[in-house]
Write a protein that binds this DNA or RNA. Structure first.
Length: 223
DNA sequence: GATTGATCATTA
DNA sequence: TAATGATCAATC
């Protein structure tokens, strides 16, 4: 039984604004969730904590966090200046069956249609329980931002379709990058090889670079 | 193994 | 010290 279920964008945003300023320790205590000694063994802990508090569909589902509202929830670790400390994972990259896949119907665009960003203090010098939640940002890409993402996405997807997955490094893309996304270095999935044959490679994912998420945070500060 | 949630930690 | 490539946990 969820402690809270958002049935409107306003209610979700209101609850997100409510947690702003609270520490992870306070939230975890309220939810009766143990605090891990460190994040190295539980990298998604903060994300899960916020999900539970906001009533998202916790766990692993290939859906948006708030399917009924069409909103994706993402926590983003920031430093004292409010700048992102990490890149942001968007979605797994399809490496096969990409015939006729276009930006307009891609997972990336779908997920980034509307995102509720929750900035969180991420500096490792702050004990986990003492880190605080920031003010939520309900974001929809501007035309310019979407154009930037589309450009990077198309470049990367073209390379994948041409069998050049293994040549792609995180250097490609201005705001959207492709990086390994797997349980470990042994995980393999099918992809298209240089000669059009099927090869096995590490699963990849799309990530937003810091320069992009920084724009979002900055714009939210101004408005 | 692949999905979700991400951060770690070594390299450059 | 920033960024890339590697990795952790829960779940299906």
């Amino acid at each position: 039984m969820p402690i809270f279920f958002p049935n409107s964008e306003q209610k979700l945003l209101h609850r997100a604004q409510l947690v702003a300023g609270y520490t992870f320790g306070e939230i975890a205590q309220y939810l009766n969730i143990p605090i891990p000694a460190d994040l190295s063994k539980q990298k998604g802990w903060v994300g899960n904590l916020i999900e539970i508090f906001l009533g998202a569909n916790a766990g692993s589902k290939a859906e948006r966090d708030f399917a009924n509202l069409g909103i994706e929830l993402k926590t983003i670790p920031v430093d004292k200046q409010g700048k992102p400390l990490e890149t942001t994972f968007v979605s797994v990259t399809p490496l096969m069956a990409n015939h006729g896949v276009i930006w307009e119907t891609s997972h990336v665009k779908y997920k980034l249609t509307k995102v509720l960003w929750i900035p969180i203090e991420g500096e490792r010098t702050i004990p986990l329980a003492d880190r605080k939640v920031g003010k939520p940002i309900l974001w929809t890409p501007t035309q310019e931002q979407e154009r930037q993402l589309k450009q990077d996405w198309e470049e990367l997807m073209d390379m994948i379709a041409l069998g050049q997955v293994e040549k792609i490094t995180a250097h490609y893309g201005t705001y959207l990058q492709l990086r390994p996304k797997a349980a470990n270095g042994q995980a393999l999935t099918e992809a298209i090889g240089e000669n059009g044959q099927i090869i096995l490679t590490r699963p990849r994912g799309f990530y937003l670079k810091k320069s992009f998420t920084m724009q979002i945070l900055d714009n939210a500060m101004k408005s």
